[in-house]
């Protein structure tokens, strides 16, 4: 140790310990204000023991003197303070919860045309609806409602299997839907299957006119295939049956857009006609899981994603 540092440090007290003859330990006490702040926090801790639940005593515990109010089924209750009571308080009496309830009440009473013309209510629905949609719908339909081709329909375009009005959407969310198309594996022979697929693709301009298309059209519109029962003579679909519009170039199950050649496109359409749509399009029922008002919020939210009619 150099002489100058020894001089500097001589002013500092040592703890009085000495090892190996001359190895000493300086004593640098904490600043007084810091030390007192520390003592004060210890005192506050003791005060907390009396306010909030704290030490175990026997088979119970010190419950604390603090109380808190909350509502259960509209009835006000008061109980000792604990995190669960605090949660119920936050859910029923906090400012955010009360404001939300107030708006939910307005939405519950309003009809769709009133909601659509009220910017405040629409702003509320976009905000709450985003959360509800994220928690309940986004897992299948995607965070932006874009869907998954082959599995879950796109909610952001203007193509609706079951109708795109607010009432239709509300009905679908409330009651769920089971998409169904029969399998045509027994009905069509390979040639016929090929023809019908070619005709279906021609409806949206994917396949050029040909004799095969004409043969397919006869099957589609005749008793041989009977496709027109659900898809209509013009192939524009039937919302009451959940039958897809085949003329609008929007493909939700057969991934036609993902294929390059006509043969590949035909293959995915043929596969769908061959197997039908069974046990794969199952929109769950949300009544019982969500309140009618929440479903209403979601209907408006989905409607304004882009394609509401």
């Amino acid at each position: 140790m150099s002489e100058s540092t020894t001089k500097q440090q001589a002013a500092v007290q040592t703890t009085g310990h000495a090892w190996d003859g001359d190895l000493q330990e300086f004593n640098n006490p904490l600043p007084r204000w810091w030390l007192w702040s520390f003592y004060v926090t210890a005192v506050i801790a003791v005060i907390y023991w009396f306010i909030y639940p704290s030490w175990p005593v026997g088979r119970g515990w010190l419950e604390g003197f603090a109380t808190i109010t909350y509502q259960v089924d509209g009835k006000a209750e008061e109980s000792r303070w604990n995190t669960r009571a605090k949660l119920l308080h936050d859910l029923t009496e906090s400012h955010a919860a009360q404001r939300q309830r107030e708006f939910m009440g307005k939405v519950a009473e309003a009809d769709f045309s009133t909601i659509s013309n009220d910017p405040d209510m629409l702003a509320f629905i976009r905000s709450v609806g985003k959360g509800l949609f994220g928690d309940n719908c986004a897992a299948c339909h995607g965070r932006g409602g874009q869907g998954v081709v082959g599995l879950y329909p796109n909610l952001a375009d203007d193509d609706w299997l079951w109708g795109g009005s607010l009432e239709n959407i509300q009905n679908v969310i409330t009651n769920g839907r089971q998409g169904f198309m029969p399998a045509f594996k027994e009905t069509f022979d390979p040639q016929q299957l090929d023809d019908v697929a070619e005709y279906v693709l021609s409806l949206s301009g994917e396949a050029p006119d040909s004799i095969a298309v004409e043969r397919g059209k006869a099957l589609f519109q005749g008793f041989g295939g009977g496709c027109y029962y659900c898809h209509g003579m013009d192939g524009k679909g039937l919302p009451s049956q959940g039958a897809a519009n085949l003329t609008d170039k929007i493909w939700t199950i057969a991934d036609v857009d993902g294929q390059k050649t006509l043969e590949e496109k035909k293959a995915v359409v043929k596969k769908l006609i061959f197997n039908g749509v069974q046990n794969m399009r199952k929109m769950p029922t949300w009544k019982g899981r969500l309140s009618p008002t929440e479903i209403k919020v979601l209907a408006v939210y989905v409607h304004q994603l882009g394609g509401g009619q």
Binding site: A139, C140, G142, L151, K282
Partner: peptide, 21 residues
């Protein structure tokens, strides 16, 4: 019970096929 069995299978095999992000 929140999602269907089919969704779980699809999601476990390839999560991004149903949840792109």
């Amino acid at each position: 019970k929140k999602y269907s069995n089919e969704w779980h299978v699809q999601h476990l095999v390839a999560p991004r096929s149903v949840v792109p992000q």
